[in-house]
């Protein structure tokens, strides 16, 4: 696939040794358990401001688990346990005083499957604003969010229609609009294109590159080409099966170009060459 010049630039932008103050979220994960099962071990994943950080790796490497630890979505799984800290603007979001519900209002999420609510397109986008007791001009913010998610022109004449009546790609962009309507700091995207066709995928990828001007994005992807196309920084996770179970860990993290062209680790090299998946 040919990447647009803009996206090529995004994919190859040098991001050497990020300045400390540019890091919005600093995930210092020690151990993540599901019950007794150690799912992910020691991984340090800093997320830089206004950059797209891509998480790649084989199935079961814990990349989704790490992403969902960043807004405490995993807390919904009763047997989940997180050891370590995730500092967000200097605060540890796993601190006992922190309310996970409030964390999720600042750190938005876009899911693997498009999941609009069974409401109108308008109400879907206004949902988060109403939830936060937004008092300003709702119409304006809804339009702005839909424009931001590059779907205003497609839906502006049918805002009263069901969000579920849209195509898969439109639904996913609606979900992005819903997520950015509240202007969150960070946007977590968990394989947002895996249920979409190539054309819809391309649109969402272009959108991600546009969105990083305003937001900080962490992106889990199964598709290495996607990471090359959109991610500024790439984190490669691997699976350690030496202890008899499958534990994910961060193998290597760095500028996307470096990870894909001259990685430091042998394992990374094998993975990006497609020698295993």
């Amino acid at each position: 696939m040919n990447a647009s010049p803009e996206m090529m630039a995004a994919g190859t932008a040098p991001a050497k040794a990020p300045a400390r103050n540019n890091i919005v979220m600093d995930c210092q994960l020690e151990k993540v358990f599901y019950g007794d099962f150690l799912a992910v071990r020691a991984s340090h994943v800093p997320i830089e401001k206004n950059k797209i950080t891509g998480f790649i790796g084989p199935s079961g490497c814990g990349k989704s688990t790490v992403l969902r630890s960043l807004n405490r979505m995993n807390d919904l799984i009763p047997i989940f346990r997180f050891e370590g800290k995730v500092s967000y603007h200097g605060q540890d979001i796993y601190d006992k005083k922190v309310d996970p519900v409030v964390v999720r209002r600042y750190i938005g999420m876009v899911f693997q499957q498009p999941n609009p609510f069974a409401m109108s397109i308008y109400d879907n986008v206004a949902f988060g604003l109403r939830l936060n007791g937004f008092k300003g001009n709702l119409d304006e913010r809804v339009e702005k969010a839909l424009q931001g998610a590059a779907c205003w022109n497609e839906v502006k004449d049918k805002l009263k229609n069901s969000g579920l009546s849209l195509s898969g790609g439109q639904q996913q962009r609606l979900c992005i609009a819903r997520a950015i309507a509240t202007e969150p700091d960070v946007l977590l995207m968990d394989e947002p294109c895996s249920a979409l066709d190539p054309i819809a995928t391309r649109r969402v990828e272009e959108l991600m590159v546009e969105l990083k001007e305003k937001y900080t994005i962490a992106l889990v992807t199964h598709n290495m080409q996607q990471a090359i196309r959109v991610a500024d920084t790439t984190a490669f996770f691997g699976v350690d099966i030496s202890q008899g179970s499958r534990t994910g860990y961060l193998v290597e993290m760095g500028p996307t170009k470096k990870i894909f062209e001259e990685p430091e680790q042998q394992l990374t090299r094998q993975y990006v060459r497609g020698e295993f998946s």
Binding site: R105, F111, N115, A118, L131
Partner: peptide
Amino acid sequence: VPKKMKDAAYGMGCTRTQVIWKVVLPT
């Protein structure tokens, strides 16, 4: 009511009560 819809509501920062009240019951 699909789990992914509830996940979406939690992801927006709904409390469990809000998930039930604003998403599960209407749907």
